[in-house]
Design a protein around this nucleic acid. Structure first.
Lengths: 112, 112
DNA sequence: AATCTATTTGGCTATTGTGCCAAATAGACA
DNA sequence: TGTCTATTTGGCACAATAGCCAAATAGATT
């Protein structure tokens, strides 16, 4: 039996939960971090050096990713290492790439 | 030969492009619209009625999705119908779901 | 042309996100 | 303990986003 309650209002909580994950990915710095973590764990200091922003800024970005459930942290000594929690994010970004390519093709078609 | 220029700065444009797509999806109303359009095209009036916000608000959300390359529009008569431009978005959201489930499991494990 | 309907755009306020600095916390190590 | 390093947190200024109303645009219909 298919529910008829697929309305916006009844789904609002579900939508908000999904949106939280998407929002976390929707920032250049955080996207960079996620893609970097696909290669393996990184400490805050490494990421900070690569990105070239204030450590506090990077720390806050990592906190957003953690809150969204995308990464987890592991404190060793006085350094904190972050790791991806889900491996699917890579394939997931392929779709984004597909969107961008499709857009580029349409643009090219317009120019012809 | 692997490029050594995978730095944040050299990738900034690419990251911004991807971020634009992710940002477009990172809003409850727009996510609802995208999922709705997976079923088929919808006019602005239909979406507006389902969501229950001002038409101008919905129109602006649709404009964001269009700018991001996620949808295209088709004017017929004085109505405008929107359609998804890429079919992969559905599978793409599966990953988001996986993140949320993984989070829920960890939470449950903590409670034990 | 006048009017009706569907949609978009402008503009305003309210809310949220970002990035830096400074200060707090925590572990390592002398 | 004192200090050094790594990280997080608080707080503030600034930028970006969201949603509403009102006005503009565009097609349909009379």
């Amino acid at each position: 039996m298919q529910s008829l309650n697929n309305t916006y209002l009844t789904r609002k909580n579900q939508l908000a939960a999904r949106t939280k994950v998407l929002k976390a990915l929707a920032h250049p710095t955080r996207l960079f971090i996620v893609e970097e973590l696909e290669q393996g764990e990184r400490c805050v200091c490494e990421l900070t050096e690569m990105i070239g922003a204030d450590v506090s800024t990077i720390s806050k970005h990592l906190s957003v990713l953690k809150q969204a459930g995308l990464v987890f942290d592991d404190k060793r000594g006085n350094m904190v290492f972050y790791q991806l929690r889900v491996s699917c994010v890579l394939g997931f970004l392929d779709c984004v790439e597909k969107v961008l390519r499709s857009q580029a093709e349409d643009y090219a078609a317009c120019m012809r």
